[in-house]
Design a protein around this nucleic acid. Structure first.
Lengths: 200, 200
DNA sequence: CACAGAATTCAACTAGCGTTGAACTCAACA
DNA sequence: TGTTGAGTTCAACGCTAGTTGAATTCTGTG
C-alpha cells in the first residue's frame, strides 16, 4: 500500500465556484467575450488558478456543459401524452429547463453558438445526436420529411430562446412560461404533425 | 506585398470600398469580433485610413447601417393584398431583403445584436420605431394585443433568420425562399390575426 | 511648375486577452 | 518537527485590438 504524504486534496469549493462563475459569465457574454479574467474576478480568484484546474478556456467551457442537463431523461416528458398536444409539451419542457438554475449552462451554450464557430458546431452536434435523433425515433414520422420538420421547429424554438433569453425582448422575456406555451405550442404542433402544402 | 507610403494613385472610391468591406466583415463576424484591421485588410488599405474616414469603430458600424434598406418603403409590399396571406407576404419580404446584396447590412446588424449589448439596443430601437410602429398603424389591431402579437412574430422571424443566416442549419439555410414562405407564413399569420386562446 | 492639401501609410501607444512557470502558503502526514 | 505537495498567487510573455500623430506621396489649382 502506497501512502502518499503531503496535503490531502480537499476543499473543492473553489473549483466548483469557478465553474459556477464560468457558467454565469459565458451565459451573459458568450464564449469569445467571456474572459477568463472576468470569470476569475467573479470567483474571487487569480486567473492562473482557472488554468490550474481546467487547463484551457476551451476545456473550461466544455466543463461548464457537463452534467446539469440530460435531454435523454427529459425528452419522454414531451413525448408521452396526447399526440395533438406534443407541441405545447415541447415548448413547456424547453422553457422549464431554461428558466431553471441549471439552465444557465444551456443559455451559455446557445449564446456562445451565436457568435463563435467552434461552439456552434458543438451545439449542432449536441442537438442532432442527443435530441433530434432520439426524438425522431420516438415520434413516428415520414423520414423524408423529418429533417425539414425538425429544422422548422428549430427556427421557432431558437427564435423563442433568442427573444426571451438573449435579446430580452418584451413582452416575451417577461411573459409567464404558460402564456408562451399556449401561444407558440400550436405552431410547433403544425411543424411537427400537420401537412405542409407547398413544402412537401 | 510592398506598399509604398503615401497617397495611392487614382482610385478615389476607397471610402466606399472600406464601407463594403466593413459590411461584409461585420455580417460574418459581428461587431465585437469584426476587427478594423480585418476590414482594412479586406479593403486593401491601412487600418489608420479607416479611422481617417470614419473616426471610430462605432461610427463605422453606424455608417454601415445607413441607407441600404428602408423598411418604410418596403412595408407596403407586405401590407397590401389579401389580409389572410399577410403572413406569407411578410416572410417573403424578409427573405427577399436578406437574400439580396443589400441584406449584408441587415445580417451585420442582426448578428452583432446577438453578441453585443450596444448593437442589440440599436436593433431594438430600429425595429420598434421603423418597423413595428408603422406596421401597427397600417394593420388595425387590438392595441392591447399588439405588443404580444409583435413579440411572437419576432420570435418566429428572428428564429428563421438565426437558423438560415447565422447558424446556417440545414435544410433551412439551403431551402428556396418560397418553400420557407409556405412553411412559416401560416404561423406568422396565426400570431398576426388569429385568436390566441389562453394568451388573451 | 510650385505648392496646398487630400489621400495614404508607418510606427508606436495603451489596453486586454490566454497562457505559463516560478514562487509562496499551509494543512496533513512521517 | 520537518517534508511534502495541493492550493494559490505573482509577474511576465506574446498576441491582437483600437487608436493616434507624424511622415510620405499624389493630385488639382493658380
Amino acid at each position: 500500500m502506497i501512502r502518499r504524504s503531503g496535503r490531502r486534496p480537499g476543499n473543492q469549493d473553489t473549483k466548483q465556484s469557478i465553474l459556477e462563475a464560468a457558467r454565469t459569465v459565458f451565459a451573459e457574454k458568450g464564449y469569445d467575450s467571456g474572459s477568463i479574467r472576468a470569470i476569475a474576478t467573479a470567483a474571487e480568484v487569480d486567473p492562473a488558478l482557472v488554468h490550474h484546474y481546467f487547463g484551457t478556456k476551451e476545456k473550461l467551457f466544455l466543463a461548464c456543459l457537463n452534467a446539469p442537463i440530460n435531454p435523454a431523461e427529459l425528452l419522454p416528458q414531451a413525448i408521452e401524452g396526447p399526440r395533438d398536444q406534443m407541441g405545447e409539451r415541447l415548448v413547456r419542457l424547453v422553457l422549464s429547463v431554461w428558466d431553471s438554475p441549471a439552465g444557465v449552462a444551456a443559455v451559455a451554450m446557445f449564446r456562445s453558438a451565436l457568435s463563435n464557430e467552434w461552439t456552434a458546431r458543438l451545439l449542432r452536434e449536441f442537438v442532432v445526436t442527443q435530441v433530434l435523433r432520439k426524438a425522431a425515433a420516438e415520434v413516428s414520422m415520414n423520414p423524408a420529411e423529418a429533417p425539414m420538420r425538425a429544422g422548422l421547429m428549430a427556427t421557432q424554438i431558437a427564435g423563442l430562446l433568442t427573444a426571451r433569453y438573449v435579446l430580452k425582448i418584451e413582452p416575451i422575456a417577461g411573459a409567464p412560461a404558460e402564456t408562451l406555451v399556449r401561444a407558440v405550442g400550436p405552431n410547433i404542433q403544425r411543424f411537427l404533425t400537420e401537412p405542409l402544402p407547398g413544402v412537401f
